[in-house]
Design a protein around this nucleic acid. Structure first.
Lengths: 332, 332
DNA sequence: CTGTTAGCGCATTCAT
DNA sequence: ATGAATGCGCTAACAG
């Protein structure tokens, strides 16, 4: 860890004033090519790096965004949220300061405080699953975007997946493949995700004249077990469904197990669609599971780009969930 | 975004000098309780936050570590790596600056440069899976720790999982449960992880007089498919194994499928152990999979704690992989 | 115990 | 086109 080399050192060695060095550092036009070259080579020789904090203090420009998560970082999904934000930030010469609060409100307040002290230029607050949150009031002192969550009064811009659209598209896809008896095993119903997906399912059915009084609707829990149970229940019906739309890929895992036990072949005997596109599950299931993707990566990107845009519109962005086709759906 | 309030404002309002304010800010003892209280209340009134960059410039103390990843952030495992580091750092008043390079060497160099400019107090370089890496030379200008990887010349401290120990423990656990014909379906053999786990498997067998010339050893790929294939192959043997140790949980997924097709019950007919403890798979498989955990969280913590310790010893830390008991192993 | 002062490294006037 | 001077907000050293 040798002595830090400052702009002064560069200036001295290049026999110019610090101002000139600063100018070439910042790509200022009015520097003769001659001196510019000389300075650049000195910078390289000395391996000089500008002191970020000094520049920051001078320019009031921290080139940093804060990224606060409740426990998102724990879940496999949402890594992509971070990564999308990361990439978008990096491409714009910004870095991310990440704090994980485990949903502890005291920590959240601390986190916001720390970010304020570090003069981040904006804050992203991301949650593990879509929900309504209450935030430390201090967050309003900065541009902020909510990721995968929203505040009750809509006072903060937010970006969330279009659960409704996803539910609709999954169901419509099945319909377009000729299915008419389409079951839906939803995840735990308190969740915003569950509500949205369910509305989409019902709407698609209705729009295609296939409403059936929720005869094939089942309430699951988000765990494979419930998929297993409900699949059994469903298949024992007098006229069982020809397709099962699962509220999560994990539910689909359970459905697969039950179906296999019953010697039903996927997709020949019955089609299955999941939700979440957890690669680790969906891609490795046998056969690979067709499912809806929650566009975490793009959501992360969008949040940063919104911050970068400087807009103060309180948009409530819903991002579409695309259908990921694999091998669990068959046309009949 | 109202005008920033500085230490000057606080001093004026409290009718003291800035030095005194600075002292209470830094918990300096020699301040009368009286003035301390007054200043504190002014700080609260004004909602004053010290300017981090200014302090940093003055103290040469950035309270920040850099965390560079190749693509770790993409994978579900390693989120825990970040989280462990995160938590340990936060508890010591440090924050993490995270950059994901996608394994792009140019980006890696940029990342190190940015971290140098921001005066991080140390760098953690983490990879998605254990391997030998080459790093931008500039990284040597700072304390650095490698996570889940190492450099060829051992010139940098590193912390990796004890793959050997994990392989050994998994095998020994099976042995202690009375199994003697123990198969091992390894993941793709180029990986360090595969080599270590295999050595552990062989050593445990040998130490218990169970060596069998690798009769039950199979080479898989890391995908469920290979587990499926190899399980069929294994079970068709004249004297099939009574237990299968899988190089990854994904392989175990395939093994489960094959076993179920063959109407073998887990664990009654055959025991299975996985590796990785990918909760999303292991906990949801039916029955839940007993497996070896790679201690990512603790590895992350350790890396930070090592940095914090200020040690310059080039330790090569191997962290034990504990056995996570679920329901796929039975005593015979 | 407390006020005053001198930089930390840089970007930006203002001269030249 | 370039050098010199100023101050961003803070901590530490020095006086008292």
């Amino acid at each position: 860890m040798r002595k830090r080399v400052t702009i002064r050192d560069v200036a001295d060695r290049a026999e110019v004033g610090v101002g000139t060095v600063s100018r070439v550092l910042n790509g200022h036009p009015k520097v003769s090519d001659n001196t510019r070259q000389r300075i650049k080579s000195v910078i390289a020789d000395l391996d000089y790096h500008p002191h970020f904090a000094a520049r920051h203090m001078r320019t009031a420009n921290s080139q940093t965004f804060g990224f606060i998560t409740d426990q998102i970082a724990t879940t496999p999904y949402a890594v992509k949220l971070i990564q999308g934000a990361q990439d978008a930030a990096f491409q714009n010469d910004m870095l991310l300061l990440i704090i994980n609060t485990e949903g502890n409100p005291a920590l959240e307040a601390d986190a916001v405080k720390l970010m304020l002290e570090r003069h981040v230029e904006g804050i992203i607050f991301a949650t593990m699953y879509p929900r309504i949150v209450t935030l430390p009031p201090a967050i309003h002192q900065l541009p902020a975007v909510l990721l995968d969550c929203m505040v009750a009064d809509g006072a903060l811009p937010s970006v969330v997946p279009d659960e409704y659209g996803g539910g609709y598209l999954a169901t419509r896809t099945l319909i377009e493949n000729g299915h008419e008896r389409i079951a839906f095993i939803n995840l735990h119903q308190e969740s915003l995700a569950a509500k949205g997906r369910l509305r989409g399912y019902r709407a698609a059915l209705r729009d295609h004249g296939l409403s059936n009084g929720d005869r094939y609707l089942r309430q699951g829990t988000d765990w494979a077990d419930s998929g297993y149970q409900q699949a059994y229940d469903l298949m024992r019906l007098a006229t069982p469904p020809t397709a099962i739309f699962c509220g999560t890929d994990r539910i689909a895992m359970g459905v697969y197990d039950a179906l296999k036990e019953m010697n039903r072949r996927i997709p020949d005997d019955i089609s299955v669609i999941g939700f979440d596109n957890q690669e680790i599950i969906a891609a490795y299931l046998r056969p690979p599971l067709s499912t809806m993707e929650v566009p975490f990566y793009m959501m992360g990107r969008f949040a940063i780009e919104y911050l970068l845009s400087g807009s103060d519109e309180k948009i409530q962005k819903q991002m579409a969930c695309p259908f990921i086709e694999r091998e669990s759906v068959r046309t009949i």
